[in-house]
Design a protein around this nucleic acid. Sequence first.
DNA 1: AGTTGATTGACAGTATACTGAAAGACTGTA
DNA 2: TACAGTCTTTCAGTATACTGTCAATCAACT
Lengths: 174, 174
Amino acid sequence: MQARTKSAKTVKEPLMSMDDLYGMPGHLFRRMQQIAVAIFMEECKAFDMTPLQYAALVAIRAHPGIDATRLSALIAFDRSTLGSVIERLETKGLLARKAGPDDKRIKLLYLTRAGADELRGVEPAVSGAQSRMLAALKPADRKTLLKLMARLVDLNNETSRAPVRPADAGRRST
Amino acid sequence: MQARTKSAKTVKEPLMSMDDLYGMPGHLFRRMQQIAVAIFMEECKAFDMTPLQYAALVAIRAHPGIDATRLSALIAFDRSTLGSVIERLETKGLLARKAGPDDKRIKLLYLTRAGADELRGVEPAVSGAQSRMLAALKPADRKTLLKLMARLVDLNNETSRAPVRPADAGRRST
DNA sequence: AGTTGATTGACAGTATACTGAAAGACTGTA
DNA sequence: TACAGTCTTTCAGTATACTGTCAATCAACT
């Protein structure tokens, strides 16, 4: 096949083929993310919950009273995106926003009773989804892949717009 | 820390902690995708091109005259999303849509001269981005990670809405 | 006190991704 | 020919993700 431009004027770099594309890290990461989300949604379809909403609830449970900006740093969300995620969770009654006592800008986030119940209920499905994502690999390969991914993500933490930051970096109240 | 519900009524399953979350495959895949896109955009910022647009152009160059539905299957795009991607590329003058000769439903896709040039121009930046994504790992680990990712993506190909399908599965003309 | 700079939340705009539906065009069969 | 089913595209709606901007608020300094 090899569609190569007819004007053969000094084509020094070899052109990318489809097989090149399939082997690119970027393509593999995109595909794996597609697949991971599909598996998550399939396992959790009884709960009307997305991966992001789940992560937000887990983080709020671990850090009740956190504000939105610090929450976004805790789970590497884009701050702008998080706003709508919080709004949806609030609409569903899973979390509550309360004004901060000292700082009027801040709205503190808490799980409602329903949110805590929903989160506890969905956790088995989430665990199942995580297992399924790696199920095709042998156990030793799963460990290897997770270790390499964790290292790669950690070493590139600052690269994306939403790097992970610890929750106590600059906490004031609580 | 460990925010655990006060009502200690038979909490059998252990609750997910933040550290659990950070180690989940789904979280790592999402983070890695964020980072990979950020690196791509940074390396290619002189070209106003997204990863998807790049992949579409590569595939059209390799399969001139392909239609949108088969293109989506070739690079695992969601068919609905691909429509707007094609529209943007057409607006930028990088590709042309022509009506199919036999089938009036089909619009065949071709690179324009400008599209071929742009694609050739951006390829070094794309290669640089791909290298950067794995630069933090040792060469041996890069190979291992790519191999495991490729296997995992391949074995789960059917899971997402947009599985990869070969271009000649059901080709009629050409 | 007043000003400056930083922080927080909200918003507009673009792009990727999926679900589901609709309309037009083709194919095979009755 | 008429009909049913299939294919191709497009659109509406929702969700994630980033860029950039804005106003309100707070903190620190003059």
